[in-house]
């Protein structure tokens, strides 16, 4: 069945009597690249500088329980917003959720500063469409062979691809989100959510400690450092989880599982499992693999806030496994 965007395009082609010329799915434009460079500096470079400041400050001012709590809470909220919301719900539709949960996950995910939910979804769907082939926005495997090619690929996939990149056609890649009024609203206020994600820990830090220093360290730990940590985790999926680690299924891409990373990025580093079963809400695919994102989805289900949670059966998993001849 054609999606809504395709229906429009299809109808327009027919009426214009154009030969079935393919729809344009990505665009490179100086105007967009300028916006991307600005976004990269504000939300990818500044958190690195902020984290460096936080570390230097430790020599003069010991970290407080309030700072650590703010870091932990905002790391969890924005990280789960990306993993459960942006990734497992909005991009892959691996479960269904109530409107308040959709809004909350979209808002928390926005606070991570990785782009608006509609852009993120469209780009990630393209990544799955073209996994590690020409056109994949952030593959580490398209930069030549040998060690230097891998290093170049790592730097591109982990960080520099975001400086300027082709931008996807959201009507093509995310027509379902465009029909969801709640998500349109969340997406429209992307920058507000980022600012709130920085302002709230700053205000709490200041109020609890009754000091300007507390506001500063609240901003650094609850804002900059947690943004840096969530980003490095997600960037590692694009870089490390397509370079090193283990494979157990037959997939078209070069994705891998890295078990030791899983507790630090909400179970996302079972990335190869995810490429084999993109529609699965569980990335661990077994109860004994650490997958906090999936555990929280089950917790939401317990309270009736998530349902239709998709997970492949044991047989479905087994028949995809690599068999040595």
């Amino acid at each position: 069945m054609l999606n809504r965007g395709d229906q429009i395009a299809h109808q327009m082609f027919q009426q214009a009597q154009l030969p079935g010329q393919p729809r344009q799915k990505v665009i490179d434009s100086p105007h967009l690249h300028k916006m991307q460079r600005m976004h990269f500096f504000l939300f990818d470079v500044l958190p690195i500088l902020g984290t460096a400041c936080a570390i230097v400050l430790l020599f003069f001012h010991p970290i407080t329980t309030v700072d650590l709590t703010l870091f932990f809470v905002f790391w969890m909220l924005s990280g789960l917003g990306i993993s459960i919301g942006y990734h497992r719900l909005f991009t892959h539709r691996s479960f269904k959720a109530s409107a308040p949960v959709r809004a909350a996950l979209g808002i928390f995910g926005s606070m991570a500063g990785q782009g608006g939910v509609i852009s993120w979804t469209a780009m990630h769907r393209r990544h799955h469409e073209l996994g590690d082939q020409e056109g994949d926005l952030h593959s580490p495997n398209l930069h030549g062979s040998g060690f230097s090619g891998k290093i170049k690929g790592f730097i591109h996939a982990h960080f520099t691809w975001m400086v300027a990149h082709p931008y996807p056609n959201v009507v093509h890649y995310a027509p379902d989100l465009l029909k969801d009024r709640v998500m349109i609203w969340v997406n429209r206020h992307y920058y507000t959510w980022i600012i709130l994600g920085l302002l709230i820990p700053t205000v709490i830090g200041g109020l609890v400690s009754q000091s300007w220093m507390g506001a500063l360290t609240g901003f650094l730990w609850g804002g900059m450092v947690r943004m840096f940590i969530v980003e490095q985790g997600i960037f590692a999926l694009n870089s490390l989880c397509h370079l090193i680690g283990r494979r157990r299924f037959v997939t078209d891409d070069q994705s891998t599982n890295i078990s030791w990373l899983a507790p630090f990025i909400f179970g996302e580093s079972w990335h190869h499992n995810h490429h084999a079963f993109p529609g699965s809400a569980s990335f661990g695919l077994a109860w004994y693999r650490i997958d906090p994102g999936y555990w929280v989805i089950r917790l939401l289900a317990l309270f009736g806030q998530a349902w239709d949670i998709k997970v492949p059966t044991k047989e479905q998993i087994e028949r995809r496994e690599i068999r040595s001849a």
């Binding site: 395009a9 729809r23 344009q24 665009i27 959201v170 093509h172 465009l178 349109i184």
Partner: peptide
Amino acid sequence: GLDSALTTALAMDLETWLGVEIPL
């Protein structure tokens, strides 16, 4: 209600329809 993401999508489909490149 079209933000920059949707405006860019519109531009891409407009270019396909017209068969010419439109500066964003």
